[in-house]
Amino acid sequence: MLRKADYSAPVFVAAALGLFFIGGLLTTVVPPLMDKSWAKPFENSDAAKGVTGKLQPYTEQQLQGRAIYVREGCWYCHTQQTRTLLADTKRSGWRGVDAPISTPDEFVYDSPHLFGTKRTGPDLSRVGGKYDEQWHKAHFRNPRDLVPGSIMPPFPWIANNETEFQALVAYMQTLGRAKNWRPDNDYEK
């Protein structure tokens, strides 16, 4: 049957697009219809059902900070996903407490999504609240001052621009905070 496509361009086009659309539609249009958690923001107040918390929409300032994170390409080296791997939950953890894995309902306000593909620096999916403003300022100025051996580029133009710096830090402090996973809400304010 496909031999016909050797001689007829219309048959060829129909076959090539037909085969492509089966997989194309089933893997892009169907999944969000099947799995509602992709679009429903995380919310749980019943400790019996697991970790509690609520995903909040970003504020104006946090969105501005997120735009800076995108502009400088932070997402090329920092992933934002605590995967279903034991090591990931420990590395994203805090003071001996393992972090919960990332779930689709924690990311419904994210556009562009920043899951990332490459982990040159550490994962940031649960970094919110771990380091204070002063730490971030020194770190952006020269990462090696705080973390010897780091290969992160310096970002003096952000550290020296108070509006941009505040916005970026405001965004970073939201990361992974939808779930109240730390004991006694051990966050730095």
């Binding site: 076959a15 085969l19 997989g23 099947m34 799995d35 996903q81 279903t84 593909t117």
Partner: peptide, 22 residues
């Protein structure tokens, strides 16, 4: 190739926050 290739996008998020069946 025409049939198989397009199904594989989600393998970029293996172990990640995306449905296991996908």
């Amino acid at each position: 190739l025409a049939f198989v290739y397009v199904w594989t996008g989600a393998h970029h998020m293996i172990h990640g926050p995306i449905s296991q069946w996908l």
